[in-house]
Amino acid sequence: MRKLILCAFAVIAFATVEAQDFKLGVSAALPMGDSGDISSFGINLDANYLWGVSDEFSVGLAAGYHHYFGKDYEDSFGGVTYTYEAEDAGFLPIGAAARFNASEEFTIGLDLGYGIGISPDGNDGGFYYAPKVQYSVSESLDIVLAYKGVSLDGGSFDALSLGLEFGL
């Protein structure tokens, strides 16, 4: 029954499409929480294709590549401190996107899907989420602040990102 309702919603949503919008984004990311212990900095490349359901609401698809640079970290065991070098982490997020135009300048958005683990070995990926707020500088340029995360077994890989999104 749930699948039938979702299919009906999708048909209604895409049948009322008013406009299409393709955007590319690039952002710098600051790893937070546990991911901040092993990563120093990140770079995100994102793309989304949105269909306008109404003047205020758009839905579509989102994908990208997020790369986080590993850093040295210390851990103590038995009174001895060990220094480790963390490997870089990479994710390929693929999912659905929704945007709500709160005003002429501000948009509130959410991307949900799966973040495929690219690196290091053993990174299986997990559920991907990215709530965001966008400020429109011009018709084809937005400043985007987002909290991006991938839920992993035993934790999550989270980062706060700030970047630009270009409408094409």
Rank of each mutant, 00 (worst) to 15 (best):
K71T: 13
I43K: 06
S103T: 07
A98H: 12
N44R: 10
F100S: 09
A13I: 05
P131M: 10
Y135W: 14
A62G: 04
Y73D: 00
G113N: 04
G122E: 12
Q20N: 13
I12L: 15
F166M: 07
D55I: 06
G95A: 09
V137E: 01
L141S: 08
A98K: 11
E85Y: 03
F77T: 04
L160G: 03
A97T: 14
N101E: 08
P31E: 09
A159D: 04
R99G: 03
A97L: 01
Y65R: 03
D121G: 09
D55M: 06
D158W: 12
K148I: 05
L141D: 00
I43G: 03
P93F: 00
F157G: 00
G113I: 07
S103G: 04
H66G: 15
Y68V: 04
A28K: 10
P31R: 15
T83V: 10
G70C: 10
M1D: 13
N48W: 02
I94H: 06
D121A: 12
G149C: 12
I108V: 13
N48E: 05
N101K: 15
E56I: 13
K71S: 10
S161R: 00
A13W: 01
S161L: 04
V137Q: 09
L110S: 07
K23T: 15
G78Q: 14
P31M: 06
V80F: 15
T81V: 12
S27Q: 08
L4Y: 05
K132D: 10
Q20K: 10
G25C: 08
L50F: 06
A10R: 02
Q20T: 15
V59H: 08
Q20I: 01
G167K: 15
D153E: 09
G109H: 02
A8H: 05
I116D: 03
G36K: 11
G163I: 12
L45D: 06
A96Q: 03
L164K: 04
G149A: 14
Y147I: 03
I38E: 00
F106S: 02
K148P: 05
S140R: 14
G25P: 01
E74V: 09
I143K: 09
K148C: 07
A97G: 12
D72Q: 14
S27V: 02
R99H: 07
G64M: 00
G95H: 11
P93A: 01
G90R: 09
F41N: 01
A130C: 15
S54K: 09
G109S: 05
L160R: 04
D21W: 02
L145S: 07
L112C: 08
L24I: 07
I94S: 03
D142Y: 07
E165T: 08
A159T: 09
S151M: 12
F41M: 02
G126D: 06
D34N: 11
I5M: 15
A13E: 06
F57S: 01
L164N: 02
N48R: 10
I118R: 02
C7M: 15
G113R: 02
I116H: 05
Y147A: 07
